[in-house]
Amino acid sequence: MAAETADTVPARRRLPSMSVLGPIVALVVLVLVGAFLNPNFVSAANITNVLARSAFIGIIAVGMTFVITAGGLDLSVGSMAAFIAGLMILVMNWALPTLGIGIPIILLGMAVALVAGLLAGLLNGFLITTLGIEAFIVTLGSMGIYRSLVTWLADGGTLSLDFGLRTFYRPVYFGGILGISWPIIVFALVVILGEILMSRSRFGRHCAATGSNEHVAHYSNVDVNRTRLLTYAMLGVLVGVATIMYVPRLGSASASTGVLWELEAIAAVIIGGTVLKGGFGRVWGTVIGVLILSLIDNLLNLTDLVSPYLNGAIQGIIIILAVILQREAKAKG
């Protein structure tokens, strides 16, 4: 949390329009309402829970911010996460007799996740850029492929990490430094790097230029295809990172892992102020979007405001309100 508030300061100074405030106001209102309704909402344990569970979608959403900014879209990330989780569990279980329980086998699992993510991202990117197929279609296809593959790997059931191994790996989700758990630390690091890359680097400017107008970007000596390919590859790696954090939590993967993560990540990116058509992206905004989405869920569970049947409706209303708030503010500013 500290990371992105630190980042907002220079951003606000550079862009002192009201549009910046939309998502922040929504988040602050949500936190105040939560604290008012249930004091436990602001307890350290609850904040840790919410931030840690936001980390999966959050890490993926940072990558998604780049893909969308460059004018692309990736629907396959949820299925990809499930597939990578399944693959990781299979490889680690397979290597257990030779490597035994210890750091090396965890590193092997992590390497598998990162490499699989990179390859999956490159494959999406290759089909979209080199073969010139619509991103929506390519990733809709790969979404189905990865979802089926994980169902097939698990034989329709659930893939579970060996019990001893799970116990050893568990601290990667539940442990941490100075009371801050690892998923939160990794999420914060990804956000800081992402924000620097987006707003301070040539790659970030190339993404925005590509998403804004491909032809102009091309004539301005931006390698459009390479930029797009890199955004998909980066998203793939980040899906791998998210999976590394996900597997130690329950130590299992099945066909129901990561369902609808892609839509949550896209919603978070848009709530945060990134333009769905591309050309403009805000990494810190995405973080606010992710937090808003997880806080709504958390808040609805902590209070008895509405029938649980209506949880989805409340979420939908808040998503739309957050975006309207932002548009209104933009019009005024």
Partner: peptide
């Protein structure tokens, strides 16, 4: 509702424990 899903029920239970 935990939707017969491990991840959803994990989140719901965490919130029940805080509440």
């Amino acid at each position: 509702h935990g939707n017969w899903n491990r991840d959803d029920s994990f989140n719901v239970m965490q919130d029940f424990l805080s509440k």
